[in-house]
Design a protein around this nucleic acid. Structure first.
Lengths: 116, 116
DNA sequence: TTCATGTACAACCATTTGGTTGTAGGTTAC
DNA sequence: GTAACCTACAACCAAATGGTTGTACATGAA
Protein backbone atom coordinates (compact mmCIF):
# COMPACT_ATOMS: atom_id res chain seq x y z
CA UNK A 1 0.00 0.00 0.00
CA UNK A 2 1.32 3.42 -0.89
CA UNK A 3 1.00 5.90 1.94
CA UNK A 4 1.19 9.52 0.93
CA UNK A 5 4.07 10.81 3.04
CA UNK A 6 3.42 14.26 4.41
CA UNK A 7 6.06 16.88 3.73
CA UNK A 8 7.27 19.05 6.60
CA UNK A 9 5.40 22.00 5.09
CA UNK A 10 2.17 20.03 4.92
CA UNK A 11 2.58 19.00 8.56
CA UNK A 12 3.25 22.63 9.47
CA UNK A 13 0.03 23.66 7.76
CA UNK A 14 -2.10 20.97 9.35
CA UNK A 15 -0.94 21.67 12.90
CA UNK A 16 -1.09 25.40 12.39
CA UNK A 17 -4.64 25.06 11.10
CA UNK A 18 -5.59 22.99 14.14
CA UNK A 19 -4.05 25.52 16.54
CA UNK A 20 -7.13 27.74 16.61
CA UNK A 21 -10.39 27.02 18.39
CA UNK A 22 -12.57 28.60 15.70
CA UNK A 23 -10.93 26.54 12.99
CA UNK A 24 -11.23 23.37 15.03
CA UNK A 25 -14.93 24.10 15.40
CA UNK A 26 -15.33 24.74 11.68
CA UNK A 27 -13.82 21.33 11.00
CA UNK A 28 -16.19 19.74 13.46
CA UNK A 29 -19.18 21.51 11.92
CA UNK A 30 -18.16 20.57 8.42
CA UNK A 31 -17.76 16.95 9.51
CA UNK A 32 -21.20 16.90 11.06
CA UNK A 33 -22.80 18.42 7.99
CA UNK A 34 -21.59 20.11 4.82
CA UNK A 35 -22.33 23.81 5.10
CA UNK A 36 -21.84 26.97 3.10
CA UNK A 37 -19.29 29.51 4.27
CA UNK A 38 -21.96 32.06 5.19
CA UNK A 39 -23.90 29.40 7.06
CA UNK A 40 -20.76 28.63 9.07
CA UNK A 41 -20.04 32.33 9.55
CA UNK A 42 -23.35 32.87 11.35
CA UNK A 43 -22.08 30.66 14.19
CA UNK A 44 -19.21 32.92 15.19
CA UNK A 45 -18.97 36.42 16.57
CA UNK A 46 -16.66 37.69 13.88
CA UNK A 47 -16.97 39.06 10.39
CA UNK A 48 -17.75 36.92 7.37
CA UNK A 49 -14.35 37.80 5.95
CA UNK A 50 -12.63 36.47 9.06
CA UNK A 51 -14.42 33.14 8.76
CA UNK A 52 -13.57 33.11 5.07
CA UNK A 53 -9.90 33.43 6.02
CA UNK A 54 -10.15 30.61 8.55
CA UNK A 55 -11.68 28.37 5.91
CA UNK A 56 -8.84 29.34 3.56
CA UNK A 57 -6.29 28.26 6.20
CA UNK A 58 -8.08 24.91 6.56
CA UNK A 59 -8.17 24.58 2.80
CA UNK A 60 -4.42 25.16 2.43
CA UNK A 61 -3.95 22.39 4.97
CA UNK A 62 -6.25 20.13 2.93
CA UNK A 63 -8.46 19.72 5.98
CA UNK A 64 -11.47 20.95 4.05
CA UNK A 65 -12.37 21.53 0.41
CA UNK A 66 -14.82 23.99 -1.06
CA UNK A 67 -17.30 23.18 -3.76
CA UNK A 68 -19.44 25.74 -5.52
CA UNK A 69 -23.19 25.18 -5.50
CA UNK A 70 -24.98 28.05 -7.17
CA UNK A 71 -23.94 31.18 -5.38
CA UNK A 72 -22.87 29.26 -2.30
CA UNK A 73 -19.52 27.72 -1.52
CA UNK A 74 -20.00 24.43 0.32
CA UNK A 75 -17.32 23.46 2.84
CA UNK A 76 -16.70 19.75 3.07
CA UNK A 77 -14.35 18.14 5.55
CA UNK A 78 -11.51 15.97 4.30
CA UNK A 79 -10.89 13.48 7.11
CA UNK A 80 -7.88 12.01 5.33
CA UNK A 81 -5.57 14.87 6.33
CA UNK A 82 -6.79 14.66 9.88
CA UNK A 83 -6.17 10.93 9.91
CA UNK A 84 -2.62 11.50 8.67
CA UNK A 85 -1.98 14.00 11.45
CA UNK A 86 -3.26 11.52 14.01
CA UNK A 87 -0.97 8.81 12.64
CA UNK A 88 1.90 11.27 12.83
CA UNK A 89 1.35 11.89 16.53
CA UNK A 90 1.17 8.16 17.04
CA UNK A 91 4.59 7.89 15.42
CA UNK A 92 5.95 10.06 18.24
CA UNK A 93 4.32 7.77 20.75
CA UNK A 94 6.09 4.89 19.02
CA UNK A 95 9.43 6.60 19.50
CA UNK A 96 8.67 6.85 23.17
CA UNK A 97 7.57 3.24 23.44
CA UNK A 98 10.72 2.12 21.65
CA UNK A 99 12.85 4.07 24.08
CA UNK A 100 11.05 2.50 27.00
CA UNK A 101 11.74 -0.94 25.54
CA UNK A 102 15.38 -0.08 24.96
CA UNK A 103 15.80 1.06 28.55
CA UNK A 104 14.01 -2.02 29.80
CA UNK A 105 16.33 -4.19 27.79
CA UNK A 106 19.44 -2.49 29.15
CA UNK A 107 18.19 -3.02 32.69
CA UNK A 108 17.41 -6.71 32.16
CA UNK A 109 20.78 -7.34 30.45
CA UNK A 110 22.76 -6.16 33.45
CA UNK A 111 25.48 -8.71 34.29
CA UNK A 112 25.21 -10.44 37.67
CA UNK A 113 26.30 -8.57 40.74
CA UNK A 114 25.74 -5.09 39.34
CA UNK A 115 22.49 -4.59 41.18
CA UNK A 116 22.87 -2.51 44.32
CA UNK B 1 -10.54 6.79 35.49
CA UNK B 2 -10.22 10.54 35.54
CA UNK B 3 -8.98 11.94 32.26
CA UNK B 4 -7.56 15.40 32.43
CA UNK B 5 -9.68 17.31 29.93
CA UNK B 6 -7.65 19.72 27.86
CA UNK B 7 -8.84 23.32 27.78
CA UNK B 8 -9.09 25.08 24.44
CA UNK B 9 -6.04 27.16 25.35
CA UNK B 10 -4.02 24.04 26.13
CA UNK B 11 -5.04 22.53 22.81
CA UNK B 12 -4.07 25.77 21.06
CA UNK B 13 -0.64 25.61 22.66
CA UNK B 14 -0.03 21.96 21.85
CA UNK B 15 -0.94 22.30 18.17
CA UNK B 16 0.89 25.57 17.83
CA UNK B 17 3.97 23.99 19.36
CA UNK B 18 3.75 21.09 16.90
CA UNK B 19 3.37 23.45 13.93
CA UNK B 20 7.11 24.00 13.54
CA UNK B 21 9.61 21.52 12.12
CA UNK B 22 12.40 22.52 14.53
CA UNK B 23 10.16 22.07 17.53
CA UNK B 24 8.91 18.71 16.26
CA UNK B 25 12.52 17.62 15.93
CA UNK B 26 13.36 18.83 19.43
CA UNK B 27 10.53 16.70 20.78
CA UNK B 28 11.82 13.71 18.87
CA UNK B 29 15.36 14.25 20.13
CA UNK B 30 14.20 14.68 23.71
CA UNK B 31 12.18 11.47 23.42
CA UNK B 32 15.16 9.55 22.11
CA UNK B 33 17.42 10.84 24.85
CA UNK B 34 17.27 13.55 27.50
CA UNK B 35 19.56 16.37 26.44
CA UNK B 36 20.63 19.77 27.65
CA UNK B 37 19.42 22.87 25.82
CA UNK B 38 22.90 23.66 24.48
CA UNK B 39 23.35 20.06 23.35
CA UNK B 40 20.09 20.38 21.42
CA UNK B 41 21.05 23.79 20.10
CA UNK B 42 24.15 22.40 18.38
CA UNK B 43 21.89 20.43 16.04
CA UNK B 44 20.27 23.44 14.42
CA UNK B 45 21.56 26.28 12.30
CA UNK B 46 20.20 29.01 14.51
CA UNK B 47 21.27 30.82 17.62
CA UNK B 48 21.17 29.28 21.07
CA UNK B 49 18.60 31.87 22.09
CA UNK B 50 16.31 30.80 19.25
CA UNK B 51 16.44 27.17 20.38
CA UNK B 52 15.86 28.33 23.92
CA UNK B 53 12.68 30.03 22.75
CA UNK B 54 11.51 26.93 20.91
CA UNK B 55 12.01 24.89 24.06
CA UNK B 56 10.02 27.50 25.98
CA UNK B 57 7.12 27.12 23.52
CA UNK B 58 7.22 23.35 24.00
CA UNK B 59 7.34 23.86 27.74
CA UNK B 60 4.26 26.11 27.78
CA UNK B 61 2.47 23.36 25.87
CA UNK B 62 3.64 20.82 28.49
CA UNK B 63 5.27 18.80 25.74
CA UNK B 64 8.61 18.95 27.51
CA UNK B 65 9.86 19.86 30.97
CA UNK B 66 13.23 21.23 32.00
CA UNK B 67 15.23 20.02 34.93
CA UNK B 68 18.34 21.68 36.19
CA UNK B 69 21.46 19.52 36.50
CA UNK B 70 24.40 21.55 37.60
CA UNK B 71 24.81 24.34 35.12
CA UNK B 72 22.83 22.51 32.49
CA UNK B 73 19.11 22.48 31.87
CA UNK B 74 17.99 19.02 30.82
CA UNK B 75 15.04 18.81 28.46
CA UNK B 76 12.81 15.81 29.00
CA UNK B 77 9.86 14.91 26.81
CA UNK B 78 6.43 14.56 28.36
CA UNK B 79 4.65 12.04 26.16
CA UNK B 80 1.39 12.50 28.05
CA UNK B 81 0.54 15.79 26.31
CA UNK B 82 1.38 14.27 22.97
CA UNK B 83 -0.84 11.32 23.74
CA UNK B 84 -3.69 13.66 24.61
CA UNK B 85 -3.30 15.49 21.33
CA UNK B 86 -3.39 12.20 19.46
CA UNK B 87 -6.58 11.17 21.27
CA UNK B 88 -8.04 14.54 20.39
CA UNK B 89 -7.47 14.01 16.69
CA UNK B 90 -8.99 10.58 17.03
CA UNK B 91 -12.08 12.24 18.49
CA UNK B 92 -12.50 14.09 15.20
CA UNK B 93 -12.19 10.83 13.34
CA UNK B 94 -14.96 9.50 15.59
CA UNK B 95 -17.22 12.35 14.55
CA UNK B 96 -16.62 11.43 10.97
CA UNK B 97 -17.26 7.75 11.58
CA UNK B 98 -20.47 8.59 13.41
CA UNK B 99 -21.63 10.67 10.50
CA UNK B 100 -20.88 7.85 8.11
CA UNK B 101 -22.93 5.50 10.27
CA UNK B 102 -25.78 8.00 10.45
CA UNK B 103 -25.84 8.36 6.69
CA UNK B 104 -25.67 4.60 6.26
CA UNK B 105 -28.59 4.22 8.61
CA UNK B 106 -30.67 6.78 6.75
CA UNK B 107 -30.00 4.96 3.52
CA UNK B 108 -30.89 1.56 4.92
CA UNK B 109 -34.05 2.90 6.61
CA UNK B 110 -35.54 4.12 3.35
CA UNK B 111 -39.16 2.96 3.07
CA UNK B 112 -39.93 0.49 0.26
CA UNK B 113 -40.24 1.79 -3.25
CA UNK B 114 -38.06 4.87 -2.71
CA UNK B 115 -35.05 3.36 -4.41
CA UNK B 116 -34.62 4.46 -8.01
C1' DT C 1 -35.34 44.29 -13.72
C1' DT C 2 -34.31 44.99 -9.29
C1' DC C 3 -32.91 43.68 -4.88
C1' DA C 4 -31.01 40.66 -1.49
C1' DT C 5 -27.64 37.12 -0.80
C1' DG C 6 -23.08 34.89 -1.02
C1' DT C 7 -18.51 35.31 -2.17
C1' DA C 8 -13.87 37.30 -3.36
C1' DC C 9 -10.38 40.26 -2.40
C1' DA C 10 -7.78 44.40 -1.23
C1' DA C 11 -6.23 47.53 2.26
C1' DC C 12 -5.40 48.40 6.74
C1' DC C 13 -4.14 47.57 11.70
C1' DA C 14 -2.53 45.53 16.22
C1' DT C 15 -0.36 41.63 17.99
C1' DT C 16 2.35 37.54 17.81
C1' DT C 17 6.07 34.89 15.98
C1' DG C 18 10.67 33.57 14.99
C1' DG C 19 14.76 35.11 14.48
C1' DT C 20 18.88 38.15 15.87
C1' DT C 21 22.56 40.37 19.17
C1' DG C 22 24.07 41.74 23.54
C1' DT C 23 24.56 41.58 28.47
C1' DA C 24 24.61 39.45 32.84
C1' DG C 25 24.85 35.68 36.23
C1' DG C 26 25.83 30.83 37.80
C1' DT C 27 28.53 26.61 37.59
C1' DT C 28 32.41 23.74 36.43
C1' DA C 29 37.13 22.80 35.23
C1' DC C 30 41.85 23.91 35.53
C1' DG D 1 41.15 32.58 41.08
C1' DT D 2 40.22 32.64 36.41
C1' DA D 3 38.64 31.05 32.21
C1' DA D 4 35.24 28.50 29.75
C1' DC D 5 30.60 26.99 29.55
C1' DC D 6 25.48 27.09 30.09
C1' DT D 7 21.59 29.63 30.75
C1' DA D 8 18.40 33.70 31.28
C1' DC D 9 16.54 37.58 29.48
C1' DA D 10 16.03 42.09 27.32
C1' DA D 11 15.81 44.76 23.13
C1' DC D 12 15.21 44.87 18.55
C1' DC D 13 13.41 43.60 13.84
C1' DA D 14 10.89 41.58 9.76
C1' DA D 15 7.25 38.77 8.64
C1' DA D 16 3.06 36.33 9.59
C1' DT D 17 -1.55 36.18 12.04
C1' DG D 18 -6.13 37.33 13.00
C1' DG D 19 -9.04 40.57 12.89
C1' DT D 20 -11.48 44.73 10.62
C1' DT D 21 -13.97 47.60 6.72
C1' DG D 22 -14.95 48.54 2.07
C1' DT D 23 -15.71 47.49 -2.70
C1' DA D 24 -16.92 44.66 -6.53
C1' DC D 25 -19.20 40.93 -8.73
C1' DA D 26 -22.15 36.84 -9.55
C1' DT D 27 -26.33 34.37 -8.55
C1' DG D 28 -31.17 33.65 -7.07
C1' DA D 29 -35.68 35.42 -5.91
C1' DA D 30 -39.63 38.62 -6.44
Amino acid sequence: MVVHELSETEIDRIFHAMADATRRDIIKQAMLREQSVSELAKRYVMSFAAVQKHVAVLERASLVAKQRRGREQIVQANPESLRRAARLLEAYEDIWRERANRIGEILSNQPEGTEP
